[in-house]
Computed example of a mutant assay.
Amino acid sequence: MTFLKKSGLAGLSMLIALSTAHAEGTIKTALDGTFAPHAMPTLDGKVEGFNVDLVNLIGARLGKTVDLTAAQFSGLIPALQAGTYDFLAAPVTVTKERSANMLFTEGFMDTNFGFLVAAGAPDFTKLEDFKGKTIAVNKGSAYESFLNEKAGEYGWKVESYGTNTDAVAAVTSGRADANLAGATVVAWAAKKNPQVKLSYEYPTGLVWGLAFRKDDVEGRNLVDKAIECLKIDGSMAKLSEKWFGVTPKEGTTIITPTKGYGVPGFDGYVDDDHKPSCALN
């Protein structure tokens, strides 16, 4: 499904300076429209979510119309490389393998793992606190692999379910002490369901970035600057509160600009001293 959305969001009076090549036109981008709360279908056949809002804020900063396509994630990267899209609005974890084939903006969010527990459960502040607990997880996911790999060390019991929704239900019914999934996924579940609450967040050290073709350094840098602006003007914090019910902590990637362009330590990163700003320059 494809739709055009012209951003007219209030409070976006400052535009990042654009080069001639990127000054006019439409941003063509895409994401997986079934990855809640980053993107999910609406009753009128469109999509909504954190990354939908994010790309429209970027479009507003760059003075462009956003042409956003919702498609299966497996087809997004090949379509980007074929030139169908200018960049991907989908959250893509930056890895060494991916950075060898694509350019990435700086991280717009940490890709941490999150534990979800019953609303009345005690606070858990480290992995050791889950020793002897039963943890529900989506079968076949990276979170299931993580739990199984560390089960001997931490002594927890892993219960796998066909969907993460079923894993959350195991917590609310008392069949499991916790659910492990992506931090934003469990935050969304806690926001919707008062029977559960967020618990310990396990840092992976990885981030989500927006992916570009290797030859589009100029486009990547423009969008990187837009993300920096959205971090410092409070827009990213507002998106976090809207979609995850979480006020970001100081120093987290979602509100902290990264020096240079791209993700430090990965291919395509450019170390320079430009100052993050929302001003015309």
Score class of each variant (00 low, 15 high):
L4G: 13
K5H: 11
S7P: 15
S13A: 09
L15F: 08
L15C: 07
A17I: 13
L18Q: 15
A21I: 03
E24W: 00
A30C: 07
D32N: 15
D32Y: 13
H38E: 06
H38Q: 06
H38L: 03
M40D: 01
M40H: 05
T42P: 01
L43T: 09
V47N: 13
E48N: 15
E48T: 14
N51A: 01
L54S: 07
L57K: 12
I58S: 14
G59D: 15
G59C: 14
R61K: 15
A71S: 11
A71V: 03
A71Q: 11
F73R: 13
G75R: 12
L76P: 10
A79V: 07
A79N: 14
G83N: 12
T84G: 00
Y85F: 15
D86L: 10
D86K: 10
F87K: 11
F87V: 01
A90N: 14
T93S: 10
V94P: 01
S99H: 08
E106P: 02
D110T: 05
N112C: 06
F113D: 09
G114K: 10
G114M: 09
G114Q: 10
F115D: 05
A119D: 08
F124N: 08
L127Y: 13
E128L: 10
F130E: 10
G132I: 11
I135G: 05
A136D: 04
A136C: 04
N138L: 05
G140Q: 07
S141K: 07
A142E: 10
Y143H: 07
Y143T: 13
Y143Q: 12
E144Q: 12
S145F: 03
S145V: 09
L147Y: 06
E149M: 10
Y154I: 12
W156E: 13
V158R: 11
E159P: 01
Y161D: 03
T163C: 06
D166Y: 09
A167M: 12
V168P: 01
V168H: 02
V168D: 04
A169D: 10
A170M: 05
A170N: 02
V171M: 00
T172L: 00
T172F: 00
G174N: 03
A176F: 02
A178Q: 04
L180G: 01
A181H: 06
W188N: 15
A189S: 15
E201F: 00
Y202W: 07
G205N: 12
L206S: 15
V207F: 08
V207P: 08
W208N: 14
G209P: 12
A211G: 07
V217A: 15
E218M: 14
G219Q: 15
D224V: 06
E228I: 00
L230H: 10
L230E: 07
L230M: 11
K231E: 01
G234F: 02
S235N: 12
M236N: 01
K238T: 14
S240I: 00
E241Q: 13
G245V: 09
V246H: 01
P257V: 05
T258K: 06
G260H: 04
G268E: 02
Y269R: 04
D271A: 13
D272W: 03
